[in-house]
């Protein structure tokens, strides 16, 4: 009975997301980012993202779970180029999760914002509700020409038309790391054991990924960096990616 009461209390109150097993987070140091887009390519290769072609790209129907946004600042000749890699922020209060009528997107036990492709019916409401525009819809069923289908990642599904998809923080790698930890008889994954494709491929090591529940992890330490900020924090979506501000030498 007491257990029931505890459970009910838990169900009636939000905030359970703070008690997840893991709380995966990321920091991106914009001072180190050169905008080389290696992360974009790595993501494309890892997650079986379709190459949509020039025509579809012009129609803005490309699928890039991670994109590098470019912003120009100032007028020529005092012009500056800013980069900001934009990917799913895995918000703790994700505005995209509530409106899905079939619960195809929800928060899993790791505090990740997940997308269940099989369950998606394609209302695209999540994409409307997402302020970061990081949800990508499969407008068509895309094909991989021979022999390109050989390079598809067997750990990741290939999505069909009418399905929404987005960055998963390479959930297949997290899964794998957890399995390894279990095989080794460890309770938890060690820091640095999981690296999403983008983090792995970053030549300047601008991205750091890890467990926020572990106070000694690299990402937890980077989180406390005074340069850190979150994108569109004022919307109270509680995003889990912290960007470290570019330190301008000429300010």
């Amino acid at each position: 009975m007491g257990k029931m009461r505890d459970k009910l209390k838990q169900y009636l109150k939000p905030g359970y997301y703070e008690k997840y097993d893991y709380h995966w987070g990321m920091t991106i140091d914009l001072d180190r980012c050169t905008g080389c887009e290696a992360c974009v390519v790595a993501c494309q290769a890892e997650n079986n993202l379709p190459i949509v072609g020039e025509k579809r790209f012009k129609e803005r129907r490309e699928i890039k779970w991670l994109r590098v946004e470019r912003y120009w600042e100032g007028e020529y000749p005092n012009i500056k180029l800013r980069f900001i890699p934009m990917l799913c922020q895995h918000c703790d209060q994700a505005p995209c999760e509530t409106p899905c009528p079939v619960a195809a997107t929800y928060h899993n036990q790791d505090g990740l914002n997940t997308q269940i492709y099989n369950r998606c019916i394609g209302t695209r409401t999540c994409a409307v509700y997402c302020p970061y525009e990081v949800r990508y819809f499969n407008w068509f069923t895309y094909k991989w020409d021979e022999p390109l289908e050989q390079q598809l990642n067997p750990d990741v599904t290939v999505r069909e038309k009418g399905v929404m998809e987005k960055c998963t923080f390479c959930i297949q790698r997290i899964r794998q790391a957890k399995d390894h930890a279990k095989d080794d008889g460890r309770r938890r994954v060690r820091d640095g054991e999981v690296t999403p494709a983008c983090v792995q491929s970053c030549p300047t090591k601008a991205m750091v990924f890890g467990d926020l529940n572990d106070p000694n992890s690299r990402v937890s330490k980077m989180y406390k960096n005074p340069r850190g900020y979150k994108v569109l924090e004022e919307l109270n979506t509680l995003p889990k990616i912290v960007y470290l501000k570019k330190a301008d030498s000429d300010v």
């Binding site: 009636l12 939000p14 505005p95 997107t105 928060h107 509680l238």
Partner: peptide, 15 residues
């Protein structure tokens, strides 16, 4: 329906 399969969404309560 919310209790049969607990799927937390958007940081909201289950009920």
């Amino acid at each position: 329906c919310a209790l049969v399969f607990i799927l937390p969404t958007g940081g909201r309560a289950i009920i």
